[in-house]
Amino acid sequence: MATSTLRLVWLYPDLLSTYGDRGNLLVLAHRARARGIDVEPMQVRSDQHVPHGADLYLLGGGEDGPQAVAAERLLDDGALTKAANAGKPILAICAGYQLLGESFYANGRCYPGLGILDLRSDRGPSRAVGEIAGETAPMLGLGSITGFENHGGRTHLGEAVQPLAQVSAGIGNDGVTEGAWAGHVIGTYMHGPALARNPRLADLLLAWAMGINPNQLAPIDDTWPEALRNERFGALSNAE
């Protein structure tokens, strides 16, 4: 790691911040501090430059208009693309996930994305709303994931990305897969916020930011996150 303090950057909270996505920043900061790791959480608005040299970047969800504005400003700024190319971890949720791809639909038209992930998004036949769950790619070591989705888009993955999970409940990308990842970039439709429900995902991002294996992170008390996960998975089982 380049510095002794982890710099966690939440991008464009004035445009992309729905369904508690700021919680992802809070969860990362809490899990780092619980291990004695110094963190500097930063909120960077859309009228500010994306900082170079941060250790981890976060994007949240948003409505069509703010999503289109965010994509345009991130393209003009260029720093997030450079960070991805340098291997910096990025977690992008819903609208933030879509704009990392080659293109997305908003306000009834197609917009260019950042091209960080090999995927494109368009409109689906119906809105996907409700619980989402699935089994993640084994190589990520995350097990099952759980979240809440609320989006009208469908996302089509290219050859240069892998799905984050195979869907067991909900829609995700297309009713079969959920999210995508390549290198140290992860995109997902999970709100909730995602990291409160999926502490292993939070720790994977922290480990990537620190340049270590997740197994090297000291264990912390996950009683409450695990209780939340069990409750959510139980609710899905009862609904079947």
Rank of each mutant, 00 (worst) to 15 (best):
T3F: 15
L6F: 08
R7C: 06
L8T: 08
L8K: 00
V9A: 12
P13F: 07
L16P: 00
S17E: 12
S17K: 09
T18E: 15
G20E: 00
D21L: 01
G23P: 02
L28P: 01
A29N: 10
H30W: 11
R33D: 03
R33W: 00
G36R: 01
G36F: 04
V39C: 10
Q43R: 14
V44M: 06
R45H: 15
S46L: 06
Q48P: 02
H49S: 15
H49A: 15
G53D: 12
G53S: 11
L59N: 06
G60A: 07
G62H: 00
P66D: 05
P66K: 00
Q67R: 09
A68P: 08
A68H: 03
V69M: 13
V69S: 12
V69D: 12
A70R: 10
A71D: 01
A71V: 06
E72L: 14
L75Y: 07
D77E: 02
L80R: 08
K82Q: 15
N85F: 10
G87A: 08
K88N: 04
I90M: 04
A92D: 05
C94K: 01
Y97N: 00
L99V: 06
G101E: 00
S103E: 07
N107P: 11
R109P: 10
P112D: 07
G113T: 04
I116Y: 08
I116L: 11
D118P: 05
A128E: 09
A133K: 08
A133W: 04
G134S: 06
E135A: 13
E135R: 13
T136I: 07
A137M: 10
A137I: 08
P138W: 09
G141H: 04
G141A: 10
F148P: 04
E149A: 03
N150L: 10
G152D: 01
G153M: 10
G153I: 07
T155F: 05
H156L: 13
L157W: 01
G158S: 01
V161C: 04
Q162K: 13
Q162S: 12
Q162A: 14
P163R: 03
L164E: 00
Q166M: 12
G170I: 07
G172Q: 02
V176P: 05
V176A: 13
T177C: 05
W181N: 01
G183C: 01
G187L: 01
M190I: 13
H191K: 05
A194G: 11
A194N: 02
A196D: 12
N198L: 02
R200I: 08
L201T: 10
D203W: 01
D203Q: 07
L204W: 06
A207Q: 07
W208A: 06
W208D: 06
N213M: 10
N213S: 15
N213A: 15
P214S: 03
P214Y: 03
N215F: 13
A218M: 09
A218D: 11
D222E: 15
T223Y: 03
W224M: 14
P225D: 01
L228G: 03
R229M: 14
R229W: 11
F233V: 13
A235F: 09
